[in-house]
């Protein structure tokens, strides 16, 4: 069967050269569908045909593999690797380089996915922690606000009570002054009476035995006047003690009232910090907790979306 070179049909070889040239030109221009068709009549021409078609088959295989493997990696289908089997030498070296690149892409993609998952988990944790804290702060703020308002009410009542006590003690002092006035009057009356009793005693002595009985009466009157004076002094001493006590009580009540007023200011400060003041920018603790929660929600949403 082997054709000897000298028997080769020159026309068949010419035809082979023409066909191979045409196919090579098409392949050069990127048409890898081109193959050298059957050439009959020359074994050398048939061998050239097989060689050229084999070259084109391998280039074709490499081009299809590299395109498809890269496309698969870009789509995240990393299981579809470059099939190097059937490709040798430079084809295989380039194929292995592509496989390596795809593996690196695959690892990077996996790391990116892990990082994204970790970020999501962190965002979830942060959100739930902040939600819990802000709820607790809001609850505590409500509780504190209620207590502060209760304290303020209590302080107002206490101040009112102390003022009433002050009034009562003040009227006690006024009453004491009136008592003192009355006792002074009684003392004057007693002094006049004693003088009258002395004059009556002198007149009774001058009347001799006829005035003896009258002298006894005058003496009794003098004794009564003296006792009245002594009692008045006793009353005056008691009144002085009452007045001193009232003054002390007034001092104490005023001090208590002042302390409660100071306390009211502090309690008002607490209530304002908790509930917020009258100014718009003066937000309270529960509003601050709500602002914090909203800010963190916004932050967490941004993280989730990225």
């Amino acid at each position: 069967m082997k054709a000897r070179p000298e028997t080769v049909d020159a026309a068949a070889l010419d035809e082979a050269v023409r066909l191979v040239t045409e196919v090579c030109e098409r392949a050069c221009n990127g048409d890898l569908e081109a193959r050298v068709p059957v050439i009959s009549g020359s074994e050398r021409a048939a061998r050239i045909r097989i060689a050229i078609n084999g070259l084109l088959d391998h280039v074709d295989a490499f081009v299809r593999e590299s395109g498809a493997a890269s496309a698969a990696a870009a789509e995240g289908r990393f299981h579809r690797r470059f099939l190097t089997q059937g490709l040798d030498g430079a084809y295989r070296a380039a194929a292995e380089q592509i496989t390596h690149s795809n593996q690196v892409m695959s690892r990077t993609a996996a790391q990116f996915a892990d990082a994204a998952r970790a970020r999501q988990a962190l965002a979830d944790e942060l959100e739930s922690a902040v939600l819990t804290v802000s709820e607790q702060v809001a609850t505590a703020a409500t509780e504190m606000g209620r207590s502060a308002n209760g304290l303020a009410d209590f302080a107002r009542v206490a101040v009112a009570d102390a003022e009433r006590g002050l009034g009562t003690v003040s009227s006690l002092r006024t009453s004491s002054d009136e008592i003192r006035h009355a006792v002074d009057l009684i003392n004057q009356v007693a002094a006049q009476t004693r003088l009258l009793a002395l004059n009556a005693t002198i007149e009774a002595a001058r009347a001799g035995s006829a005035g003896r009985g009258f002298g006894v009466v005058a003496n009794e009157v003098k004794n009564l006047a003296n006792e009245t004076s002594a009692s008045s002094e006793e009353i005056m001493s008691q009144v002085n003690t009452v007045q001193q006590s009232a003054a002390d009580a007034i001092g104490v009540l005023e001090a208590v009232t002042n302390r409660i007023r100071e306390m009211s200011v502090l309690v008002e400060g607490i209530a304002q910090a908790v509930d917020g003041g009258h100014q718009i920018e003066d937000v309270g603790l529960s509003q601050l907790a709500e602002v914090l929660r909203a800010e963190v929600s916004r932050f967490v949403s941004t993280i989730r979306a990225s």
Binding site: E33, R35, D57, H58, D60, A61, Q85, G86, L87, D88
Partner: peptide
């Protein structure tokens, strides 16, 4: 063969 390709179009 391990490194042969069967090709058809």
């Amino acid at each position: 063969g391990e490194n042969e390709l069967i090709v058809s179009k």
